[in-house]
Design a binder for these strands. Sequence first.
RNA 1: GGGUGGUUAGCUCAGUUGGUAGAGCGCUUCGUUUACACCGAAGAUGUCGGGGGUUCGAGUCCCUCACCACCCACCA
Length: 1000
Amino acid sequence: MPMEKTFDAAEAEARIYARWDQDGCFAAGANARPGADPFSIMIPPPNVTGALHMGHAFNNTLQDILTRWHRMRGFDTLWQPGTDHAGIATQMVVERELAAEGKSRRDFSRDDFVARVWQQKVKSRGNIRGQLERLGASCDWSREAFTMSGAPGAPEGEEGNFHDAVIKVFVDLYDKGLIYRGKRLVNWDPHFETAISDLEVEQVETDGHMWRLRYQLADGLTYDHPTAFDEDGNPTEYEARDYLTVATTRPETMLGDTGIAVHPDDPRYTHLVGKEAILPLIGRRLKIVADSYADPDKGTGAVKMTPAHDFNDWAVGERTGLQAINVMTPRAAMWLKDNADFAEGCEDWGLTRVIQALDGLDRYKAREWIVETADAEGWLDGMDADRHMVPHGDRSKVAIEPYLTDQWFVDTARIVQPALDAVRDGRTKILPEQHEKVYFHWLENIEPWCISRQLWWGHQIPVWYGLNMWADSATLPAGDLDEVDLGALLLDDGIVHAGDHHHAATDFGAVAKAFHKDIASLPQPLNVARVVEVEDKHAAIEALAASLADYAVSQDPTHLIYPVWRDADVLDTWFSSGLWPIGTLGWPEDTPELRRYFPTSVLITGFDIIFFWVARMMMMQLAVVNQIPFHTVYVHALVRDEKGKKMSKSLGNVLDPLDLIDDFGADAVRFTLTSMAAMGRDLKLSKDRIAGYRNFGTKIWNAARFAEMNGVWENHATHITPPRPTATVNRWIVGEVARARLAVDEALAAYRFNDAANGLYAFVWGKVCDWYVEFAKPLLADEATAAETRETMAWVLDQCLILLHPIMPFVTEELWSTTGHRPKPLIWADWPTYGADLIDADADREMNWVIALIEEIRSARAQMHVPVGLKLPLLRIELDAAGRAAWDNNAALIQRLARIDSLTDAPSVPKGAITIAAEGGLFALPLEGVIDIAAEQARLAKTLEKLEKDLTGLRGRLSNPKFVESAPEDVVEETRDLMAQKDDEAGKLRAALARLAELA
RNA sequence: GGGUGGUUAGCUCAGUUGGUAGAGCGCUUCGUUUACACCGAAGAUGUCGGGGGUUCGAGUCCCUCACCACCCACCA
């Protein structure tokens, strides 16, 4: 059955992929040579929230190219796939679904909610895998990993030990004091009601106002406020003021003000330092403190301090001993009622009014009320429109609130050094190198990493709390009970899944002795029979009270229990994905895969997650197993739309990779992305370009089709050994194949993906299809050369398929498996190693001469409007020995491709003929009656003009003695040769023109 | 405010140690010669953002200016 004219990608791709998968082609170590070196790549795990976009298509194409290339080269190759649980993003998706049903997560128990998220995860994971399969990704699906595998509540089919790894790392770092809990100001997302890290905050330029407020000085104090200045800017007149003017963009935070800062050297205010001002509305006394944070040149030089709601103020407060008063709820509404810290020191009249007006009110509503009230009461000193940056949550898109809460932190400053050193000393290389600077800058200025999130979906923090009490007292101590951090839970023989004991409260005593901080070593002696896990602190107090009451009656010490409860927070997603390299390979178990494939060879990722992920993986792997996670990090750019805009859902310019694959086939999409993957530059994707590479697939398809029609594949067995043909054309193309192979390997080894793709494109289309196939036609028709040409062409096309396969796996595999006799699928074919020794210099020179002559004749014919179908005789005016040999060897090819019917010698270019200059010779095409002389004159004149322009430049250079002296010899030599050649050609053209002039 | 990258043909972009500019698309002309019209042949188009410097020689190295993009940090 003859081949179709085009490759049916839609039909073939799924079939081919399924066969690869069934035959285990992707498995770790598949096609590895004995004793092969390992090559491993970890996929950047996509979020389980949704669909893959073009960035994923790009990223995974590059990974697949490297993977397939190494697999064919016989490396022990692993491409590790998997997905990330993406805490906040995934929880958001599920909460949105619930919202559509009119519910919130609070309507469910935590366990039920988490079960629902697992369902979402299972569904989405299938989508992601399906999309990667459409793209042709050859990852080892049998090893598919998930950053929350093995976590409590995981449904069947989600086993694995990633959770163990995460918990163990938390415990280990906790033991080393690298993880700590603290009441700190954090970035608080009032929508999700959770802390987020610095990286999850994006600054958004927002229209706002700067309000100036007057704060009365206490105790009749005044200061001299300058009201007039001389020309040098020195004050000349003053007025005594009994108030300070402070400015703010967020008036609602004033309720948390506890001080006013002035610069220690500001002469206006030095006498006020240590004195007090009075907060409007509620009459709280504000301490006036000296701190260099206050800039005398800004505003009035006096700054109000709200340590609980501003990061800078918090820092000043730490230095100067200001109290931090939280005045907001987790949803960023005002929290004034039942807020003892807030009420302390306030005037009753003010308190009553403010609570009535503002308690429970949203922060922005509260702002309006305060501004209106200030205006009405005369302590608003004015306002200006002000455009400034406001921090927003990157997921929720609401303004984040600096908020005072208990959170867990990684003391990153203490683990950052090895991550810096590894890149500095080159153990890990970052490409393109410019990204190293960004990496260094961030790590050198690293801040503590807030890793706790007030979410339900994620790894729950493995820390339990208990009550700080006298356990042997028979009654509850008076007053509130402090809680005490009991530490991370760890058994001597390894990790205990938190989930194993989550509901087994009665068994909890059995593991109590294994507490990291042993019960017996708690600050106060405990003498209890059992440790019981309860929901929270409130439940713990109740349970303890009941236990003690029971004991009081029964006097039975076995009734005494010690209630503990677990930290409700989960870990930042990036804490677990930061362990992706070791976690996917089975750590903390010492698996063969871990020993084999770690450290991994290369990480392919986008620049947008260098901080989020790459830097954290570096720090964490080095901190945990003291090894670099990867030898090379290749950072690729962004895929944009054809106008250069970032693709985003809100702009509606998103190109779905699946749609493109439907339209053009996966190979075309992959080739397009690869050809545009120049290091460090964003790529603009357009459908025209993809169509062009789809056409490229058709081109190679049809070259194979030509081969098939000419019996090239008959009796063809795959062999990697190049043939040793005798015909010049065949010798020539073998050398061209070798050049292409060297170029591809060199490009891929240097991560120059675009060079590899473009080089192959030029080779396959420009050399093989445009010239070799055309040359082969007469050779195949000639019995003397037919056999070796068939053999050579089969080999050449095989090499094209092999070299193209990493970039366009489907069409190449299809051609491979439907032609000749193949012992292995192409995905496992042996990558060639032949090199420059296959290049035959004589054949090279000869074929270049032939090609140049054909092009020259074609060009002349086209410009003279010679009918394409018209065959012409060619006149040989003069030709050197090399030229004669080349002609004699290839006369049939030249005549066919240049449409020449005969060659005869002539002494000179006759009247009515056009001149054809060739290296080492001169030809003429008699065109009497076909062309007009003026047109030929114009053609020659134009060519000559160009030549002479070149010659002027060359002559100028060579006549400059400094050039001949300083330039390298080979450059001078090359210039001389070029000059001689052009001079020769110009001479011929001048002669031809002169003759034409005579004739005219 | 600090930093990074970019500015090359009409469009999108390559251009690896400095040796005299390329590709794809688009455009023009011609063409269905037994692989391919998702094709073939031929052709036009660039003071390589501006200015200065180093050099025999600069798209490439240095300085400077302009504009664009992105990242980081924020001024109450």
